[in-house]
Amino acid sequence: MSYPGRQAPAAPDLHSLDTALTACRACPRLVAWRQEAARVKRPAFRDWEYWARPVPGYGPVDARMLLAGNRTGRMFTGDRSGDALVAALHDVGLASQPTSTHRDDGLELHGVRFTSPVHCAPPAHKPTPAERETCRPWLVRELELLRPTVRTVVALGAFGWQAVLPVLAAGGRQVPRPRPAFAHGTRVELPPAEPDGAPLALYGCYHVTPRNTFTGRLSPAMLRDLLRTAAREAGLPAR
């Protein structure tokens, strides 16, 4: 059994899960890539200390909304994807500040947690399906631990959507068959996993990549509207 398959189910809480995750070396290609990136630094960050490990989720342990999409560094930090997402969250009242620049910049998320289907930075930002499968136990356990509070999940991009659906099924949710296709604004309601549980709403959102935000495929208004809708359904006071 893989390291994620052994360690993730045994984690009693999110802190333990995140700690175990940062020691993962299950995917040789990703381990080699992250270590090389830390050795051969980008010129703009030559003086920075690189993380060079898997990136855990970020946000409160009692989050009511989960954002799932593939990014590097502290989740959605220090790149233009993070710039767009955190600015939108701040605009609707779910982030303490409009920027996310580094690990100790003071950013706090209000009722929202960031996570990723693949927790290591992949070459060309493209993890393989096999790497996604290897990493899946972390996300399965994360959603299990968040089950008492989380009410909406926003999947960023088709890759995030394709990763989240089987994770929800593995956690006991009844996922429609055939599985719903990804599109921006798609909403799928999943019934409770237990008799006394709560339903969960899954939203699809175009990923906040520069390719989408610079071309207008995903405008700031579109992103704010979707986040606001998902947050309010989760019971968060989004403005």
Rank of each mutant, 00 (worst) to 15 (best):
R29S: 13
P98L: 08
E189L: 04
A95N: 02
V153D: 06
T213W: 09
A121D: 01
G172V: 07
A8G: 02
R228K: 06
V118F: 09
H110L: 01
C24W: 03
L109G: 03
E133P: 00
P191L: 14
G106Q: 11
L89W: 00
C120G: 02
R151L: 07
K126A: 13
E36M: 09
V167Y: 09
E108S: 08
A121I: 08
V208R: 02
T215N: 00
P43R: 12
A234W: 10
A155I: 10
L218E: 01
R42I: 09
Q97P: 01
R177N: 07
P178F: 14
A88M: 11
G73M: 01
R187G: 10
P237F: 13
G82F: 07
T149P: 00
P237S: 15
P180K: 03
R103M: 07
P28A: 09
H110M: 01
A169K: 15
H15T: 13
T128R: 05
R239E: 06
A37P: 00
L146G: 05
L139S: 05
T19L: 08
P178M: 15
A63Q: 04
R177Y: 11
P220S: 10
A38E: 13
P43T: 09
G82T: 04
V167A: 12
D83F: 07
G172N: 14
M222T: 02
V140Y: 04
G106D: 09
A221D: 04
R80V: 00
A23F: 03
H125T: 05
A11R: 13
M1E: 06
R141A: 00
Q174P: 00
G172K: 13
V92R: 00
A201R: 14
G82W: 05
A23E: 10
T215E: 01
R74I: 05
V118I: 12
D83M: 05
R53E: 13
W48N: 08
P192I: 15
A10S: 13
P220Q: 08
L109H: 08
A130G: 04
D91R: 15
R34A: 04
A158K: 14
E189Q: 13
Y50R: 12
G78C: 09
G204I: 14
V118T: 14
E131D: 15
V164A: 11
A8Y: 02
R224T: 11
